[in-house]
C-alpha cells in the first residue's frame, strides 16, 4: 500500500507537468487549429530565464515574473511573425513552422544561456513530507496546486468574462466569431500569450524537482502532445486528465512492471484508448466536412 502511494505521488508530480504542457497545446489548438510543437520551449524558457536572472542578483519573485513576461512576449512573437503570416496554410505546414520555432528557440537558449543543467531552490524547502509510508516533496504539492489554480482561473476567465467568451467563440467557429464583430487576430494572439505564460509558470514550478536545460523542450512537447491527445484535443479538462493519467501510467508501470519499458507501456495504453475512443477520452467526435 505504501508502495502504491509512493508510485501515485511520483505519477502525480510528473503528470502535473505533462498536464500543464498539454493545457498549452489545447489552448492554442482551440484558438487556431495549430499543434504548437514549441510548447516545451516555453517551459524551458520559464525555468532558464528565472535561473539566470536569479544568478544576476534579482530576487526570486521578480526573476520569476520577468521570466513569465519574457516567455509571453516570445509566445506573442511566435504568433505575430510566424503563425499569422502563414494563416490559411494546411495543418502540417503550420506544425512544421512550430518545429522550426522550437529549433530556433533551443538554438537561441544555448547561445544566450548555456548547455548545462540548472536547478532552482524549492519554495518550501526540500524536507519530504512522509505520509502512509511514502514521501512527497513539498514542491510537488506546489506544482499540483499551481496546476489546479491555473485550470480554475482559465475556467473562470472563459466562463465569466466577455473577452473569455470571445476566445471561446473564436475556438468554436472563427468565421462566425468574425461576423459578430470579434477581432479573431486578437483572441488567437491572446491564446498564444496565455499558452506561453502557462508554459513558463510550469517551468518555474517544476525546475526545483525536474531540473532544466536548453534541450528539455522536445521530450516535454512529445509527452504533452500525447497527453493532450489521450484526453481528447480541444478539451481543457481532458488535457489535465490526460497529463495526470500519463504520469500515473509511467510511474505505475515503472513500479510494478518494468522500468525499461515504462514509456512503452504508457504508449500502448494510449494506443489502446484511441482504438476504443478515436477522439480521446473527452474529445468531441469530429465530422468530416464535405
Amino acid at each position: 500500500m505504501a508502495e502504491l502511494l509512493q508510485f501515485a505521488f511520483s505519477g502525480l508530480t510528473v503528470g502535473a507537468v505533462y498536464a500543464l504542457v498539454a493545457l498549452g497545446f489545447t489552448l492554442i489548438y482551440n484558438a487556431s487549429d495549430v499543434i504548437n510543437f514549441a510548447q516545451g520551449e516555453f517551459v524551458m524558457l520559464g525555468g532558464l530565464v528565472t535561473v539566470f536572472l536569479l544568478a544576476a542578483g534579482l530576487p526570486l519573485p521578480v526573476a520569476a515574473l520577468l521570466a513569465v513576461v519574457a516567455s509571453t512576449l516570445v509566445g506573442l512573437a511566435l504568433y505575430r511573425f510566424a503563425i499569422e503570416p502563414a494563416r490559411g496554410a494546411n495543418a502540417v505546414t503550420l506544425i512544421m513552422i512550430t518545429i522550426g520555432a522550437s529549433i530556433f528557440l533551443r538554438g537561441a537558449a544555448q547561445v544566450i544561456f548555456d548547455k548545462r543543467y540548472h536547478s532552482l531552490p524549492p519554495l518550501f524547502g526540500d524536507t519530504p513530507i512522509r505520509f502512509g509510508g511514502a514521501a512527497i516533496l513539498p514542491q510537488s504539492l506546489v506544482v499540483l496546486a499551481g496546476a489546479l489554480v491555473i485550470v480554475v482561473l482559465l475556467w473562470a476567465f472563459v466562463d465569466r468574462t466577455l473577452f473569455g467568451k470571445a476566445v471561446l467563440a473564436t475556438a468554436a467557429n472563427k468565421l462566425a466569431a468574425r461576423l459578430v464583430g470579434i477581432d479573431t487576430r486578437l483572441t488567437v494572439g491572446f491564446s498564444f500569450a496565455i499558452s506561453a505564460a502557462i508554459g513558463a509558470i510550469a517551468g518555474i514550478l517544476v525546475t526545483p524537482i525536474t531540473l532544466t536545460s536548453y534541450n528539455i523542450g522536445t521530450l516535454l512537447a512529445l509527452k504533452g502532445f500525447a497527453a493532450a491527445m489521450l484526453g481528447g484535443i480541444g478539451s481543457a479538462v481532458g488535457a489535465v486528465l490526460g497529463g495526470l493519467l500519463l504520469g500515473l501510467l509511467e510511474a505505475l508501470s515503472a513500479g510494478y512492471l518494468s522500468s525499461e519499458f515504462k514509456d512503452a507501456v504508457a504508449f500502448i495504453v494510449i494506443l489502446a484508448v484511441l482504438f476504443v475512443r478515436p477522439q480521446g477520452l473527452l474529445g468531441r467526435a469530429r465530422v468530416e466536412r464535405v
Binding site: 499543434i35 502532445f225 491527445m229 484535443i233 512503452a264 494506443l271 482504438f275 478515436p278 468530416e288
Partner: peptide, 27 residues
C-alpha cells in the same frame, strides 16, 4: 487499426508506434 484514426490522433498513434520500435531497438 491505426489508420482508422484521423488527423492529429493518427499523428500521435504513429508517433507512439515509432517510439515503441525505438525502445525495442534500445532495450
Amino acid at each position: 487499426p491505426i489508420l482508422r484514426l484521423k488527423g492529429h490522433y493518427l499523428a500521435v498513434a504513429t508517433l507512439g508506434f515509432g517510439l515503441l520500435l525505438a525502445i525495442v531497438f534500445t532495450s
